[in-house]
Design a protein around this nucleic acid. Structure first.
Length: 591
DNA sequence: GCCGTTTTCGGCCCGACTGTTTTCAGTCG
């Protein structure tokens, strides 16, 4: 097993121990070790070979032996023993918001409930409220939680699906006779979560499709083959998913084999969205054609469509990038006669720096220097440090004294490092009443200020809205961090009137963050688009807590593209000189 | 289970919310 797989085992052990009511500090030790494994700076093999694993913080004698056992044998007796003692249904119950190990244990021991299905029935027949420690409110919350989980069921975050899809496609591409092969579907449209993987491929004439299908269904992560024919096969994959308590998730994958001349129509068809396709088909009919997954055909047979561009061209349209095919105005914009055409989308490598990042000073796991160097390594010109502010004790937020020490450190590093400039920032907490977690004098000393909500997320909508607007009205605030607080497939956005917030951001010339953490992606694309239309400047930030999280900016760029952004809509496409000038002028103006 | 110029036991980021109680346990970040 590699480090990530062992980390998943430790996380699973932690959950199982929790359900058994074990010592919480022991449980935390497993979690801490898992996190350490996930963020190793050296390969696990080397650490073991050189006997340096025990030097890693959080890994002691007992866990060292377990790591070595798992690494060597892929098995751990303790895990199997624990799995045998805890009904698997308890793990899914833990996914309910507001339900933790103690409550699950109480329900299991009190009513014998060991699955979400049984729990739902017990709620509906009013049994739960009778258990000690539970009441009518909890019963309602459980039912709402079950409904929420259902909604997200079967969807996985983009990086998880993308990793396995790329691997699968690379494997299929190596088969002799496979000519063109592409990922289609929502993955190609850059959606933040996906339900399944769609792959379209063509074979050279005379190649037997069976051989390709054999490889597809024999892919190691396939756990179920739900269909298999000459042109289409469907499987269910089991993939590693750190977001799930079990560490695993299932998602479907479809492979479609088409004749070479049908490739472009098939790719377009299976890319979707369904609504976009429906509109394209009706345009085809208006033009006297017929469009389906095989061809765009006229009265005299199929038209030559070797590329997607040619299909759109036959319909009198410019090619629409897949990420815009959501039937939100893209077809009208693709008309050459349209007043405003399709956007010139921000290129994937367009960012020159980042602003929202953490270091070991708060809750990051790399030093300021390590983070800045990692940014430089990725070709960025500047790195903004924005550690948490003092009230966020859980994240080791910085007191004013520690802020000033960090400023000194920044100055020293800027004198020393070449090729990367460090900006002094903070992720200051927006307190319950909308005031900020540092005084005005200190705030004025930063190059820029990211303001974010981390506490009191359950405020009523009008209070939350007023709170955020008050915060971004503060003259020192440069950008609003993760504006809605959502966690994809995990937690909904908090109640907030986002349009009112955007209007205030516009008024006060505050930037809005696209948080590129792939588990957040907050602001979402639809609101990115709205912000852009209002003329609000956006900023893409990784919210990195480790050096390897800086590369997450790609997911933020994808959201920006889905939100129709061009390079000029995003602040950090600007170079270090321009950014410095902008931040300075802004401070002088707001003074 | 980890960690230690507190060195082999006794701590382990901790404050606030929610829903249940009638002073608090469980959950969350």
């Amino acid at each position: 097993m590699d480090a990530n797989e062992i980390a998943a085992v430790f996380n699973e052990i932690a959950i199982l121990l929790e359900l058994r009511g074990e010592n919480v500090f022991k449980i935390n030790a497993y979690r801490k070790a898992a996190r350490a494994l996930e963020t190793l700076t050296q390969p696990l093999d080397n650490l073991i070979a050189e006997g340096n694993l025990a030097k890693v913080d959080g890994i002691g004698k007992a866990l060292l032996i377990k790591i070595e056992t798992l690494h060597k044998t892929n098995r751990l007796e303790e895990l199997e023993h624990l799995r045998g003692q805890v009904p698997p249904g308890l793990l899914e119950m833990l996914r309910l918001p507001g339900i933790g190990p103690k409550k699950v244990k109480a329900l299991y021991e009190g009513l014998g409930i060991a699955s979400l299905v049984a729990l739902k029935e017990a709620c509906e027949s009013d049994q739960i409220a009778k258990v000690k420690g539970f009441g009518p409110k909890t019963q309602v919350n459980i039912l709402e939680g079950i409904a929420f989980l259902k909604e997200g069921e079967g969807r996985v975050h983009r990086p998880i699906a993308l990793e396995v899809a790329n691997d699968l496609v690379n494997r299929l591409r190596q088969i002799e006779g496979v000519q063109r092969i592409e990922i289609a579907g929502s993955l190609r449209r850059l959606r933040d979560t996906v339900k399944d993987i769609d792959i379209v491929a063509t074979l050279a004439p005379g190649v037997d499709p069976e051989g390709v299908m054999d490889v597809f269904v024999a892919y190691p992560q396939v756990v179920h083959v739900s269909g298999r024919g000459q042109t289409k096969a469907s499987v269910v994959l089991e993939v590693r998913n750190p977001m799930m308590l079990s560490g695993r998730s299932r998602l479907g994958a479809d492979l479609r084999l088409v004749a070479p001349e049908n490739f472009a129509p098939a790719l377009a068809y299976f890319t979707g969205s369904k609504e976009h396709n429906v509109r394209l088909r009706s345009l085809a009919i208006e033009a006297g054609y017929k469009l389906n997954e095989y061809a765009l055909a006229g009265p005299n047979g199929p038209l030559d469509c070797p590329t997607e561009e040619s299909i759109y061209r036959h319909l009198g349209l410019a090619w629409v990038p897949p990420e815009l095919r959501e039937m939100t105005g893209e077809i009208a914009a693709a008309d050459p006669k349209a007043k405003s055409g399709l956007p010139n989308l921000i290129p994937m490598g367009a960012l020159k720096g980042i602003f929202h990042n953490h270091t070991t000073a708060s809750d990051g796991n790399a030093s300021l220097e390590e983070m800045a160097l990692a940014a430089r390594e990725l070709g960025l010109e500047y790195f903004g440090v924005a550690d948490h502010s003092q009230s966020l004790g859980i994240a080791n937020g910085l007191t004013p004294d520690r802020v000033k020490k960090q400023w000194t450190e920044v100055d020293l590093l800027n004198a020393k490092l070449e090729g990367v400039h460090i900006f002094k920032g903070t992720e200051v907490d927006i307190l319950e009443d909308g005031s900020l977690d540092y005084d005005d004098a200190l705030l004025a000393g930063f190059d820029y200020v990211v303001a974010s909500v981390h506490m009191y997320m359950n405020q009523p909508k009008d209070e939350m809205t007023a709170r955020i607007i008050k915060a971004i009205s503060h003259p020192s605030v440069t950008m609003l961090g993760h504006p809605t607080g959502r966690l994809l497939l995990r937690r909904n956005a908090y109640a907030v009137d986002l349009d009112a917030v955007l209007a205030a951001a516009m008024k006060h010339q505050v930037m809005i963050e696209i948080n590129a953490n792939p588990w957040r992606l907050d602001l979402d694309w639809i609101h990115v688009r709205r912000a852009r239309e209002l003329g609000i400047l956006l900023v893409i930030n990784p919210d990195a807590h480790a050096t390897n999280e800086i590369a997450n900016i790609r997911y933020g760029l994808e959201v920006a593209r889905r939100g129709w952004c061009e390079a000029e809509d995003v602040f950090n496409t600007r170079g270090v000189l321009e950014v410095t000038k902008h931040l300075q002028e802004r401070k002088e103006r707001k003074g």
